[in-house]
């Protein structure tokens, strides 16, 4: 169970990173087409924005699992176990609220069929669905974290999923 959710979180993080690479590809293609063929791809900015917002949430679960989300650890040394419990429970409460809020937003987009309405007709439910998926996985990861605390296991993985992680998260 934990393994399955970790694997899902990892896959989503990979997807989110690749999606950002996709932004690069789109913009570079736009630059060359515009310069040399006089063609401009009108969807690039809007799609990029949607990819970015999706990517932020799709990566959130794995980032939590691997200790990538920043927090103030001033009091951890004082009361290590209670600290993890308190932050975990508060985090879970906020994550649940957030997930519920984003789900309602997405449901609103789904039922109204609302589109971006600026340059493309992208139905907003598409990026919103990714956002909700990311929120759900984030919430699951916090829940599992509390479970790990209960079972006395380490709350975070000791790998980031990279063979050679850049020191930004070390």
């Amino acid at each position: 169970m934990i393994k399955a959710i970790d694997r899902l979180s990892y896959a989503l993080a990979q997807l989110s990173g690749l999606a950002i690479c996709g932004i690069v590809v789109m913009i570079v293609v736009e630059i060359f087409l515009r310069k040399f063929a006089g063609i401009s791809l009108h969807f690039v900015w809007e799609y990029s924005v949607f990819i970015h917002i999706s990517a932020v949430f799709l990566g959130a679960g794995w980032t939590l699992r691997t200790g990538g989300h920043i927090r103030v650890t001033l009091l951890r040394a004082l009361i290590p176990r209670a600290f993890e419990w308190i932050s975990g429970v508060i985090g879970l409460a906020i994550a649940l609220f957030l997930t519920s809020a984003m789900t309602q937003l997405a449901l609103g987009y789904l039922t109204s069929g609302r589109t971006a309405g600026t340059t493309t007709d992208t139905p907003l439910i598409i990026p919103a669905a990714f956002v909700v998926l990311g929120c759900v996985v984030l919430t699951l990861q916090i829940t599992l974290r509390l479970l790990a605390l209960l079972l006395g296991r380490a709350p975070e993985l000791d790998t980031t999923g990279e063979d050679d992680p850049a020191p930004i998260m070390d």
């Binding site: 515009r34 401009s40 809007e46």
Partner: peptide, 15 residues
Amino acid sequence: TDVFDSAGMTPVQLP
């Protein structure tokens, strides 16, 4: 965007 396209210009979307 569509209007300028139809007039033979190259419309560019930018924030």
